[in-house]
Computed example of a mutant assay.
Amino acid sequence: MTDFSQDPQFWGARALGALAGSAISLIYLLPKGSREAASRMVTGFACGLIFGGPTGLWLGQKLDLLEHLSGFEIMLAGSTAASLSAWWGLGLLARLAARYGAKPGG
């Protein structure tokens, strides 16, 4: 069983990174409404918390930076990247569905 009693610093890095990723993506691609903003914000935050660690390790390995960064920095960067990616992906899918989806009554 996985041990979820990790150092609170890592949970703080996950939450901060997930929030930062969601906030950054709000700046780049404004949502059309409050419902879209809320759903994308929650999705981005959840993905940042869940996938922050693996994403940070993957990025660190690909960029060959693992020996130069602390665990906090790896977790922060991974959570931000995972949150930003999820937010953009959901936003893109919502826009494509709205544009090319079946029109009601037509």
Rank of each mutant, 00 (worst) to 15 (best):
P54N: 03
R35Y: 13
S39A: 08
K103Y: 02
I27G: 05
A77S: 14
A20N: 07
W87L: 04
G89V: 01
G44C: 06
G78V: 00
D64G: 03
E36S: 07
L29T: 14
P31I: 02
L26P: 02
P31G: 03
L29S: 15
D64H: 14
G12C: 13
I24W: 13
K103D: 00
F4T: 11
S5G: 07
T43G: 12
F45C: 04
L30F: 03
I24Y: 13
A82S: 13
H68R: 01
A81F: 11
R95L: 06
W88A: 12
M75A: 08
L65C: 13
S79A: 10
A20L: 15
S5V: 02
S5N: 14
L30E: 15
F51P: 03
A98N: 11
W11D: 09
L63V: 11
G48S: 04
A46N: 07
G21N: 01
F10P: 03
K62F: 06
L93G: 05
A97G: 03
A18D: 08
A20V: 12
P54F: 06
L92A: 14
W58C: 06
H68W: 04
L19D: 06
I27E: 10
H68C: 00
S85I: 01
G21V: 00
G71W: 10
E73R: 00
D3W: 04
